[in-house]
Amino acid sequence: MISLCNVTKTFRKDFWSPSFTALDNVSFTIGEGEAIGFLGANGAGKTTALKILFDFIKPNSGKVEFSGTAGKNLSEALGRIGYLPERPYFYPHLTGAEFVHYMGELTDVSKSDRVQRMQYWAERFKIDHALGRMIRGYSKGMLQRIGFVSILVHNPDILILDEPLSGLDPIGRKELKDVLREIAKLGKTVFFSSHIVSDIEEVCKKVVVLEKGALLYEGDIESLLSEHDSKVYELKIRTFAEKLKLENEVFYEKLYDLHIHRIDGFVSENVARVLSSGAEIYSLNPLRPSLEQIIYKIRP
Protein backbone atom coordinates (compact mmCIF):
# COMPACT_ATOMS: atom_id res chain seq x y z
CA MET A 1 0.00 0.00 0.00
CA ILE A 2 2.89 2.33 0.82
CA SER A 3 6.25 1.25 -0.54
CA LEU A 4 9.71 2.70 -0.34
CA CYS A 5 11.47 1.65 -3.53
CA ASN A 6 15.27 1.61 -3.67
CA VAL A 7 15.60 4.70 -1.56
CA THR A 8 19.10 6.08 -1.06
CA LYS A 9 19.81 9.17 0.99
CA THR A 10 23.12 10.77 1.76
CA PHE A 11 23.84 13.73 3.97
CA ARG A 12 26.64 16.19 3.71
CA LYS A 13 27.39 18.16 6.81
CA ASP A 14 29.40 20.84 5.07
CA PHE A 15 29.99 21.57 1.47
CA TRP A 16 33.49 20.08 1.59
CA SER A 17 32.99 17.16 3.97
CA PRO A 18 32.49 13.65 2.61
CA SER A 19 28.89 12.53 2.35
CA PHE A 20 27.38 10.09 4.76
CA THR A 21 24.95 7.40 3.61
CA ALA A 22 21.94 7.35 5.92
CA LEU A 23 19.88 5.03 3.70
CA ASP A 24 21.38 2.66 1.20
CA ASN A 25 19.01 1.35 -1.47
CA VAL A 26 16.25 0.58 1.02
CA SER A 27 12.95 -0.97 -0.08
CA PHE A 28 10.08 -2.14 2.06
CA THR A 29 6.29 -2.15 1.96
CA ILE A 30 3.68 -1.18 4.50
CA GLY A 31 0.88 -3.56 3.57
CA GLU A 32 -2.83 -3.01 3.96
CA GLY A 33 -4.13 -3.81 7.45
CA GLU A 34 -0.77 -4.93 8.73
CA ALA A 35 0.83 -4.15 12.08
CA ILE A 36 4.49 -3.64 11.35
CA GLY A 37 7.36 -2.78 13.62
CA PHE A 38 10.22 -0.69 12.30
CA LEU A 39 13.24 -1.92 14.16
CA GLY A 40 16.67 -0.37 14.19
CA ALA A 41 19.34 0.94 16.54
CA ASN A 42 19.96 4.66 17.09
CA GLY A 43 21.08 6.19 13.84
CA ALA A 44 19.93 3.25 11.73
CA GLY A 45 17.95 5.56 9.47
CA LYS A 46 14.35 5.03 10.66
CA THR A 47 13.47 8.70 11.03
CA THR A 48 15.17 9.53 7.74
CA ALA A 49 13.08 6.88 5.96
CA LEU A 50 9.87 8.34 7.41
CA LYS A 51 10.88 11.88 6.46
CA ILE A 52 11.32 10.68 2.90
CA LEU A 53 7.97 8.89 3.00
CA PHE A 54 6.29 12.20 3.90
CA ASP A 55 8.34 14.19 1.39
CA PHE A 56 9.87 16.34 4.12
CA ILE A 57 13.22 15.58 2.55
CA LYS A 58 14.08 14.31 -0.92
CA PRO A 59 15.96 11.06 -1.48
CA ASN A 60 19.03 11.03 -3.72
CA SER A 61 17.39 8.23 -5.63
CA GLY A 62 14.42 5.92 -5.35
CA LYS A 63 10.78 6.77 -4.72
CA VAL A 64 7.76 6.22 -2.53
CA GLU A 65 4.69 4.58 -4.06
CA PHE A 66 1.12 4.68 -2.84
CA SER A 67 -1.78 2.42 -3.72
CA GLY A 68 -5.00 0.90 -2.36
CA THR A 69 -6.44 2.47 0.80
CA ALA A 70 -3.63 4.99 0.84
CA GLY A 71 -4.78 6.51 -2.44
CA LYS A 72 -2.65 7.16 -5.49
CA ASN A 73 -0.21 9.70 -4.14
CA LEU A 74 1.02 11.36 -0.97
CA SER A 75 -1.56 14.14 -0.92
CA GLU A 76 -4.39 11.59 -1.18
CA ALA A 77 -2.73 9.44 1.45
CA LEU A 78 -2.24 12.20 4.02
CA GLY A 79 -5.94 12.45 4.87
CA ARG A 80 -5.94 8.75 5.77
CA ILE A 81 -2.69 8.70 7.69
CA GLY A 82 -2.11 9.67 11.27
CA TYR A 83 1.57 10.53 11.74
CA LEU A 84 3.38 11.35 14.93
CA PRO A 85 7.01 12.40 14.49
CA GLU A 86 9.85 11.66 16.84
CA ARG A 87 9.87 13.90 19.96
CA PRO A 88 6.83 15.82 18.72
CA TYR A 89 6.26 19.43 19.65
CA PHE A 90 3.23 21.62 19.15
CA TYR A 91 2.37 25.32 19.25
CA PRO A 92 3.20 26.24 22.85
CA HIS A 93 0.59 28.97 23.21
CA LEU A 94 -2.34 26.90 22.01
CA THR A 95 -4.23 24.77 24.50
CA GLY A 96 -4.29 21.01 23.98
CA ALA A 97 -7.89 21.18 22.80
CA GLU A 98 -7.15 24.00 20.36
CA PHE A 99 -4.32 22.00 18.86
CA VAL A 100 -6.51 18.92 18.41
CA HIS A 101 -9.14 21.08 16.71
CA TYR A 102 -6.45 22.57 14.50
CA MET A 103 -5.33 19.14 13.33
CA GLY A 104 -8.93 18.01 12.86
CA GLU A 105 -9.94 21.09 10.90
CA LEU A 106 -6.99 20.65 8.57
CA THR A 107 -8.31 17.17 7.81
CA ASP A 108 -11.89 18.40 7.26
CA VAL A 109 -13.39 16.76 10.33
CA SER A 110 -16.73 18.25 11.36
CA LYS A 111 -16.87 20.07 14.66
CA SER A 112 -19.12 17.52 16.36
CA ASP A 113 -16.86 14.65 15.30
CA ARG A 114 -13.83 16.56 16.51
CA VAL A 115 -15.35 17.20 19.91
CA GLN A 116 -16.56 13.65 20.30
CA ARG A 117 -13.35 11.92 19.21
CA MET A 118 -11.20 14.31 21.18
CA GLN A 119 -13.18 13.50 24.29
CA TYR A 120 -12.92 9.78 23.66
CA TRP A 121 -9.19 9.64 22.93
CA ALA A 122 -8.25 12.22 25.54
CA GLU A 123 -9.89 10.04 28.15
CA ARG A 124 -8.18 6.94 26.83
CA PHE A 125 -4.81 8.62 26.91
CA LYS A 126 -5.59 10.27 30.25
CA ILE A 127 -4.91 13.76 29.03
CA ASP A 128 -8.51 15.03 29.29
CA HIS A 129 -7.70 16.95 32.47
CA ALA A 130 -5.14 19.09 30.61
CA LEU A 131 -7.05 19.82 27.40
CA GLY A 132 -7.73 23.39 28.49
CA ARG A 133 -4.13 24.12 29.44
CA MET A 134 -1.51 25.71 27.22
CA ILE A 135 0.83 23.18 25.63
CA ARG A 136 3.77 25.26 26.89
CA GLY A 137 3.26 23.71 30.32
CA TYR A 138 2.97 20.08 29.15
CA SER A 139 5.47 17.43 30.24
CA LYS A 140 7.18 15.18 27.73
CA GLY A 141 4.69 12.38 28.23
CA MET A 142 1.75 14.77 28.03
CA LEU A 143 3.05 16.08 24.69
CA GLN A 144 3.19 12.52 23.42
CA ARG A 145 -0.35 11.87 24.65
CA ILE A 146 -1.90 15.02 23.16
CA GLY A 147 -0.03 14.09 19.98
CA PHE A 148 -1.84 10.74 19.83
CA VAL A 149 -5.20 12.44 20.33
CA SER A 150 -4.41 14.95 17.58
CA ILE A 151 -3.57 12.28 15.03
CA LEU A 152 -6.56 10.09 15.86
CA VAL A 153 -9.13 12.86 15.62
CA HIS A 154 -9.66 12.24 11.90
CA ASN A 155 -10.05 8.50 12.43
CA PRO A 156 -7.14 7.50 10.17
CA ASP A 157 -6.83 4.12 8.46
CA ILE A 158 -3.07 4.14 8.70
CA LEU A 159 -0.97 5.04 11.71
CA ILE A 160 2.69 5.87 11.25
CA LEU A 161 4.51 6.60 14.49
CA ASP A 162 8.16 7.42 15.08
CA GLU A 163 9.24 6.01 18.44
CA PRO A 164 5.82 6.51 20.00
CA LEU A 165 6.76 4.72 23.21
CA SER A 166 9.69 6.88 24.15
CA GLY A 167 8.86 9.47 26.75
CA LEU A 168 6.00 7.44 28.22
CA ASP A 169 5.99 5.90 31.68
CA PRO A 170 5.45 2.13 32.01
CA ILE A 171 1.69 2.50 32.40
CA GLY A 172 1.55 4.85 29.45
CA ARG A 173 3.54 2.38 27.37
CA LYS A 174 1.13 -0.39 28.18
CA GLU A 175 -1.88 1.80 27.43
CA LEU A 176 -0.48 2.83 24.08
CA LYS A 177 0.36 -0.74 23.14
CA ASP A 178 -3.19 -1.74 24.04
CA VAL A 179 -4.59 1.01 21.82
CA LEU A 180 -2.30 0.05 18.95
CA ARG A 181 -3.33 -3.59 19.24
CA GLU A 182 -6.97 -2.53 19.29
CA ILE A 183 -6.54 -0.35 16.21
CA ALA A 184 -4.72 -3.15 14.43
CA LYS A 185 -7.57 -5.52 15.28
CA LEU A 186 -9.98 -3.19 13.51
CA GLY A 187 -8.08 -3.99 10.33
CA LYS A 188 -6.21 -0.71 10.25
CA THR A 189 -2.55 -0.37 9.40
CA VAL A 190 -0.07 0.33 12.16
CA PHE A 191 3.57 1.09 11.48
CA PHE A 192 5.84 2.26 14.25
CA SER A 193 9.54 2.48 14.90
CA SER A 194 11.30 1.33 18.02
CA HIS A 195 14.56 -0.17 19.12
CA ILE A 196 13.01 -2.50 21.63
CA VAL A 197 12.20 -5.93 20.24
CA SER A 198 9.62 -6.84 22.86
CA ASP A 199 7.57 -3.66 22.27
CA ILE A 200 7.26 -4.51 18.62
CA GLU A 201 6.62 -8.17 19.35
CA GLU A 202 3.70 -7.29 21.60
CA VAL A 203 1.87 -5.36 18.89
CA CYS A 204 3.13 -6.45 15.48
CA LYS A 205 3.11 -9.52 13.33
CA LYS A 206 5.65 -8.19 10.91
CA VAL A 207 8.88 -6.34 11.24
CA VAL A 208 11.22 -4.30 9.08
CA VAL A 209 14.77 -4.27 10.40
CA LEU A 210 17.19 -1.52 9.46
CA GLU A 211 20.85 -1.48 10.35
CA LYS A 212 23.25 1.33 9.46
CA GLY A 213 21.05 2.47 6.62
CA ALA A 214 20.58 -0.95 5.05
CA LEU A 215 17.55 -3.22 5.11
CA LEU A 216 18.37 -6.35 7.08
CA TYR A 217 15.05 -8.13 7.25
CA GLU A 218 11.44 -7.69 6.22
CA GLY A 219 8.81 -10.21 7.16
CA ASP A 220 7.22 -12.20 9.94
CA ILE A 221 8.47 -11.32 13.38
CA GLU A 222 7.66 -14.78 14.73
CA SER A 223 9.83 -16.55 12.23
CA LEU A 224 12.63 -14.06 12.75
CA LEU A 225 12.53 -14.61 16.49
CA SER A 226 12.16 -18.37 16.40
CA GLU A 227 14.82 -18.70 13.76
CA HIS A 228 17.22 -16.79 15.90
CA ASP A 229 15.79 -17.61 19.26
CA SER A 230 18.43 -19.14 21.44
CA LYS A 231 15.66 -20.82 23.53
CA VAL A 232 17.28 -19.48 26.63
CA TYR A 233 15.16 -19.24 29.75
CA GLU A 234 15.81 -17.14 32.76
CA LEU A 235 15.10 -18.78 36.09
CA LYS A 236 15.10 -16.70 39.24
CA ILE A 237 15.30 -18.55 42.56
CA ARG A 238 14.74 -17.08 45.99
CA THR A 239 15.32 -18.05 49.62
CA PHE A 240 18.12 -20.41 48.96
CA ALA A 241 21.54 -19.78 50.31
CA GLU A 242 23.74 -21.70 47.92
CA LYS A 243 24.02 -21.76 44.19
CA LEU A 244 22.21 -24.73 42.72
CA LYS A 245 23.88 -26.81 40.09
CA LEU A 246 21.73 -26.74 36.95
CA GLU A 247 22.04 -28.38 33.56
CA ASN A 248 22.92 -26.35 30.45
CA GLU A 249 23.52 -23.21 32.42
CA VAL A 250 24.82 -20.40 30.25
CA PHE A 251 24.82 -17.55 32.73
CA TYR A 252 24.63 -17.05 36.48
CA GLU A 253 24.39 -14.04 38.71
CA LYS A 254 23.42 -13.37 42.31
CA LEU A 255 21.44 -10.22 42.97
CA TYR A 256 20.64 -9.63 46.68
CA ASP A 257 18.62 -12.72 47.63
CA LEU A 258 17.90 -13.71 44.03
CA HIS A 259 19.86 -16.33 42.14
CA ILE A 260 19.55 -15.69 38.43
CA HIS A 261 20.24 -18.65 36.17
CA ARG A 262 19.99 -18.67 32.42
CA ILE A 263 19.54 -22.09 30.94
CA ASP A 264 19.52 -23.17 27.36
CA GLY A 265 16.42 -25.27 26.71
CA PHE A 266 16.19 -28.21 29.06
CA VAL A 267 13.79 -26.56 31.48
CA SER A 268 11.64 -29.24 33.11
CA GLU A 269 14.49 -31.21 34.60
CA ASN A 270 16.02 -28.11 36.07
CA VAL A 271 12.72 -26.95 37.52
CA ALA A 272 12.21 -30.35 39.12
CA ARG A 273 15.64 -30.11 40.63
CA VAL A 274 14.94 -26.66 42.09
CA LEU A 275 11.63 -27.74 43.55
CA SER A 276 13.03 -30.85 45.16
CA SER A 277 15.79 -28.79 46.74
CA GLY A 278 13.17 -26.75 48.55
CA ALA A 279 13.96 -23.42 46.89
CA GLU A 280 11.28 -20.98 45.83
CA ILE A 281 10.93 -20.19 42.13
CA TYR A 282 10.57 -16.46 41.83
CA SER A 283 10.10 -16.35 38.07
CA LEU A 284 10.71 -18.29 34.88
CA ASN A 285 10.74 -16.48 31.57
CA PRO A 286 11.83 -17.15 28.03
CA LEU A 287 14.56 -14.67 27.13
CA ARG A 288 13.75 -12.77 23.97
CA PRO A 289 16.79 -11.91 21.96
CA SER A 290 17.62 -8.24 22.06
CA LEU A 291 17.84 -6.08 18.98
CA GLU A 292 21.62 -6.35 19.07
CA GLN A 293 21.50 -10.13 19.19
CA ILE A 294 19.12 -10.35 16.25
CA ILE A 295 21.09 -7.90 14.19
CA TYR A 296 24.31 -9.65 15.07
CA LYS A 297 22.85 -12.94 13.91
CA ILE A 298 21.26 -11.90 10.65
CA ARG A 299 23.96 -9.54 9.56
CA PRO A 300 25.38 -10.91 6.32
Binding site: L78, G79, I81, P85, P88, G147
Partner: peptide, 8 residues
Amino acid sequence: YMTLSRPV
Protein backbone atom coordinates in the same frame (compact mmCIF):
# COMPACT_ATOMS: atom_id res chain seq x y z
CA TYR B 1 5.80 18.07 10.59
CA MET B 2 2.42 18.02 12.29
CA THR B 3 0.81 20.48 9.89
CA LEU B 4 2.43 19.08 6.76
CA SER B 5 1.39 15.53 7.65
CA ARG B 6 -2.21 16.74 7.23
CA PRO B 7 -3.49 17.22 3.67
CA VAL B 8 -1.95 20.67 3.44
